[in-house]
């Protein structure tokens, strides 16, 4: 019986700039089904944080309820964590960010948690442009309750039991584009080469960053006829481009044909290099991104990669002009200046 992961690691594991091996970023052993796409996404998160050499205690991971929302237990054991109420992760993230904007907020949600019970929360966190990463582990079904269709299941997709979904799917990236999201990406749990640079860029992005990851449910939604099965997704993938994340002060090493490459400088000086660009698409133009999404839908394809980015963006704190000093580092006299200060404030409005 092994629910225990052996303690031994490869003796020559490489170390990042902080001198940490990937082990430092691991979590406990997953209890999700064997082969669950969510575990691959967890591993991609571990790899991204390791490669970016983030200090684990500078990260807060947040989630709602569901298979997806269990995953924060399986990565970044040494980071802050909050497993919140179903669909209410955005509120908790907003509150946490208001109290301490210096942490990296990493939200994990699922298709049910985001597109059904949490839809109201999701749309508002997008339009408020809260500085966070929002990963949707999207498998098109309610895995925790035995695989009923979720709101992101495609029309016509067949369940394991054989019933066909009658309803239109909620397309989260398109919705986020519509609501003014400043970073929208889509990926596939089985393609870490693409997913990892996207997560790294999302972490570096100074506003709300949505990554919708198609993550097959091996137990309930990996059957023929399902549009979220490993085989189906692999056959219908259409990437906008390949993505390389270039850390600050590092030379771009791979050279591609002129005209097929686009370099996007991120807020902190690092950059994203997009190669082999899809035609008629400009990741910095919202209209072209929305068109590309609609076109892919018409063509029956799943568009993955970076879809839209607005590198210089105004996040929630900038919009509402919060104090530069995080609230949690202020002392009582600053937070609660007393009745005289209140009087003076009230006086201003009289």
């Amino acid at each position: 019986m092994t629910y225990i992961k052996p303690k031994f690691r490869h003796p020559s594991l490489p170390k990042n700039d902080l001198g940490y091996t990937k082990t430092v970023y691991e979590g406990s052993l997953s209890t999700l089904c064997a082969g669950c796409g969510h575990d691959s996404i967890s591993a991609a998160i571990v790899q991204s944080c390791y490669e970016l050499a983030l200090e684990p205690h500078r990260i807060a991971k947040l989630s709602g309820i569901g298979c997806s929302s269990k995953t924060p237990a399986y990565f970044l054991s040494q980071s802050h964590g909050f497993n919140s109420v179903h669909g209410r992760m955005p509120s908790v993230a907003t509150g946490a960010s208001l109290a301490n904007k210096d942490l990296i907020y990493f939200g994990v949600s699922g298709d049910g948690d985001t597109a059904s019970i949490g839809m109201g929360q999701f749309v508002h966190v997008v339009r408020r442009n809260l500085n966070m990463v929002y990963v949707v582990m999207n498998n098109g079904c309610y895995g925790l309750t035995k695989g009923q269709d979720s709101a992101t299941a495609d029309e016509g997709s067949k369940s394991k039991a054989g019933s066909v979904n009658l309803f239109n799917a909620i397309d989260l990236p398109s919705l986020a584009l519509e609501l003014g999201a400043s970073f929208v990406a889509q990926s596939f749990s089985g393609d870490k080469a693409q997913l990892i640079p996207l997560i790294k860029a999302a972490i570096k992005h100074p506003g709300f960053a949505l990554i919708n990851v198609i993550s097959p449910c091996v137990t309930f939604n990996n059957n023929p006829g399902s549009t979220k099965a490993y085989d189906y997704v692999r056959e219908h993938l259409d990437a906008t481009s390949t993505v390389d994340f270039i850390p600050l002060q590092e030379e771009i090493s791979v050279a591609y044909e002129a005209g097929s490459t686009k370099n996007i400088e991120l807020h902190d000086g690092s950059s994203l290099q997009l190669n082999k660009l899809a035609t008629n698409w400009n990741p910095e133009d919202r209209m072209s991104a929305m068109t590309a999404m609609q076109q892919a839908k018409l063509d029956g394809e799943i568009l993955t990669g970076l879809i839209f980015i607005e590198p210089e963006t105004t996040d929630l704190h900038a919009m509402i002009k919060t104090s530069d000093t995080p609230l949690n580092t202020m002392d009582e006299s600053q937070l609660c200046p007393g009745s005289q200060a209140l009087e003076a404030l009230n006086e201003e409005f009289r």
Binding site: R9, H10, L13, A34, C36, S40, A43, G190
Partner: peptide, 15 residues
Amino acid sequence: CIECDACVDICPTAC
């Protein structure tokens, strides 16, 4: 093999 990467992610010694 369906190339789900589960083995890669779990292997403690990155084999």
